[in-house]
Simulated assay, not measured.
Amino acid sequence: MSSPAGAVQLGVLVVVLAVAVGLLVVARSARGRRAPLAAEPAPDLPVATEHRPFAAVVANPTKVDDADVRLDWVRQASEDLGWAPPLWLETTREDIGAGQARAAVEAGAAVVLAYGGDGTVRAVASSLTGTGVPLGLLPAGTGNLLARNLGIGVTDLAEALRTGLSWSERKVDVGVVEFDLSGEDHTPRRETFLVMAGLGFDAEVMASVEPRLKERVGWLAYVVAGLRLMHGRRTKVTLRIDDRPPVTRRMRSVIVGNCGELTGGVRLLPDAQVDDGWLDVVVVSAGGLVGWTAVIGAVLTRSRRGHPVVEHFRCREIEIRAEAPNQVQLDGDPAGEARVMRVRLEPLALSVRVPPLS
């Protein structure tokens, strides 16, 4: 579903007020256009030569209208740019991109193109981190937040493909998060993220949206969920930030970001840069209309000071320990529950194809 810019901006304002940092969800309302195309299957396994590299495409079939047509589109673009025919790998419910990306690296792909939304991008990136094989972005989700932060157009897939098959790259930081459900787990679940990880209200909203309602009304389903949950109680958390003394807060949401720009140029994390080696943290403690109104002011003015319901921190590592398990999210996707969330960065661990001078 695509919506006019004015509607997107209004949606952002509504959700900031009603859903606080649910801005991350509303950012998922601008779907990229699909490029027009014609069909033919690619070979099972491309062969790279010294002069003709090949790309692998890890595609989310729920975001691709016609796989054969799209494959031929990538094949034709590859040929026009002097590349060998591409390798096409589709995600599954059981493997949303990590295994396919590993297979692409083993096959010798010169670049792996993630064709889907932020979840597909995150899964593919988790297998490319540290390999030296770059990630290309074919934005086909509703948020496409990494693409936005890197200046990759989200409304022109043809241009995004040309960028992915170019040789202009940028190294970015990769977030590493551990989720501990009990708070005493010696082998916590380990995940990666590229944009943001969150614990609390924002994740509750994402997890509570009814799929059928989302199909009918799109991102407004998140507003409905946020309005239903906005009066929930605050949770006591202890924050251990680098080697500083621990601090205690009563929060509605804690978001740890690697980059901070959302749709419409709104910056939830004013200082966040995808390659600066820092984590940017926002703690939201709003508990009523006055508190949510203060959140609006802090986000839209990019203020780092002011009302105590919004606090900002910068760090290399952070541990958030809650008094009880809370919903968590990664790059806008629900990720279950955790009582403890530990986050750090792997600086400049991933190369991403970007427009020249991006």
Rank of each mutant, 00 (worst) to 15 (best):
L300N: 09
A77G: 04
T187H: 14
A349F: 05
A101R: 07
R321L: 10
D180Q: 08
V58D: 09
P86K: 09
G265P: 07
L17P: 00
V217E: 07
D331E: 12
T301V: 11
W219M: 13
T263F: 04
L45R: 14
V25N: 13
P211Y: 12
S208V: 01
V16E: 03
A101E: 03
F193Y: 06
D185R: 12
A140S: 15
E50F: 05
S2M: 03
G136I: 12
P41M: 07
D80R: 15
V19N: 10
D44M: 06
R190Y: 02
D185S: 15
V58M: 05
G265L: 03
V309D: 15
A101C: 08
T163V: 15
R305W: 07
T62R: 14
A349Q: 04
V15N: 15
A59S: 06
A349P: 08
R244Q: 13
G136T: 11
R233Y: 11
P53C: 12
P211G: 14
A322K: 03
T248M: 03
V281S: 08
G257F: 01
A123T: 03
Q76L: 10
P86W: 03
G153P: 11
A207K: 06
L157R: 01
R353L: 02
V283A: 14
L137G: 06
A158V: 01
E337V: 11
E90D: 14
R75T: 09
R162E: 11
L157P: 02
L146T: 09
Q329I: 03
R93Q: 14
T187R: 14
R216A: 15
A7Y: 11
L137V: 10
A158Y: 00
L89E: 06
I320K: 05
V352L: 02
L128Q: 13
F193K: 01
P325I: 05
P308I: 08
R339H: 07
L289H: 13
L24M: 01
L10G: 05
V274I: 08
D243V: 01
A42L: 14
L157I: 07
V266F: 07
I96V: 04
D242E: 06
I152G: 08
P46E: 12
S127P: 12
H307E: 14
R75Q: 08
L345N: 08
V283K: 07
R216Q: 14
V237G: 00
D276V: 10
E323T: 11
N258A: 10
V111Y: 02
A123D: 11
G218I: 09
R33C: 09
T235E: 09
R244V: 03
S168W: 09
P61L: 00
G119P: 02
H307A: 15
A39F: 13
V328K: 04
T163I: 15
A197F: 02
W292Y: 14
G141R: 07
R190G: 00
L194K: 08
E94Y: 10
Q329N: 04
G153S: 13
L300D: 07
A286Q: 07
D333Q: 05
T129G: 13
V111I: 06
V328Q: 00
V111R: 01
E94H: 13
S285E: 11
G130S: 12
G97D: 00
L229P: 08
P211W: 13
E169I: 01
A147R: 08
G257N: 11
A221C: 09
G97I: 05
T163A: 01
P211L: 09
E311C: 03
D156V: 05
N326P: 00
A338F: 00
